[in-house]
């Protein structure tokens, strides 16, 4: 059974439609990349999947025992968290906030979860550093660890490598791929990096004004929507 089914969904703000007829299904262990131009509604789609917004039309159905709280989220970089006084540990720990933290044992368990996820992403040494003073790559790892504290089932990543240098980009991609391969985390990732799509993803959702295009990576490579085909721009 599919973890998530999106049927004929229309997205938009205050009645103005941004994208329509978006349909796709997500199976356990999928690595789905969402590509498309700036403003084509990729971030809006993620917010809709997270129920931060309602779809204008269509429906999003969860299955395979997935509940809304099993979907973790790495937001597109925002300026709002700048100069916020928070340590890396506090940020990672805040991923556990959906769980109960009343009582001594729950608190302890949450701290252990946070530690484990920081170890997985190699940021244990940063635990007491100030989040706002980290580099972009370290901040993304911190937010990824936070998302993992919330869930191990589905992660929605909104341009996780934006602003990272090639080395840090590569490392982050490898980390995400490892989570997908070894821990079976389903990944939905927005990216502008077609190379990464070809390398890591098994499915692609191309958002555009012409009907959105959902396919496996192999089909996408040979399709009209693929911008690298016949000298298109990347």
């Amino acid at each position: 059974m599919s973890q998530m089914i999106c049927r004929e969904v229309s997205l938009g703000y205050d009645g103005a439609t941004v994208a329509s007829h978006v349909s796709f299904t997500v199976e356990k262990g999928d690595y789905l990349c969402i590509v498309g131009e700036n403003g084509s509604g990729k971030s809006t789609l993620m917010k809709t999947l997270l129920r931060l917004r309602q779809p204008l039309e269509g429906e999003i159905v969860l299955g395979d025992g997935i509940r809304q709280s099993d979907i973790g989220y790495l937001p597109q970089q925002s300026e709002t968290q700048k100069d916020f006084p928070a340590s890396v540990m506090e940020v990672v720990l805040s991923g556990c906030v959906g769980r109960s933290d009343f009582g001594f044992f729950a608190k302890r368990k949450n701290r252990i979860t946070a530690h484990d996820n920081m170890a997985r992403l190699g940021i244990c040494s940063l635990a007491s550093r100030s989040y706002s003073e980290l580099s972009g790559g370290q901040q993304q790892r911190t937010l990824l660890a936070r998302a993992l504290c919330a869930t191990e089932k589905i992660l929605l990543l909104d341009e996780p490598v934006a602003g990272l240098d090639p080395h840090a980009t590569e490392e982050l991609y490898e980390t995400i791929a490892r989570l997908n391969r070894e821990s079976g985390v389903t990944i939905l990732m927005i990216t502008h990096d077609l190379g990464a799509v070809m390398r890591y993803a098994n499915r692609v959702l191309h958002m555009s004004a012409t009907p959105t295009f959902y396919s496996s990576v192999e089909e996408y490579r040979t399709s009209m929507a693929f911008p690298l085909r016949e000298g298109g721009v990347s």
Binding site: L50, L52, G72, T80, Q81, E90, S94, V97, G98
Partner: peptide, 11 residues
């Protein structure tokens, strides 16, 4: 710290 994230995980 991050209202969207908190809402997404069910707060």
């Amino acid at each position: 710290f991050d209202e969207d994230f908190a809402r997404a995980v069910g707060v």
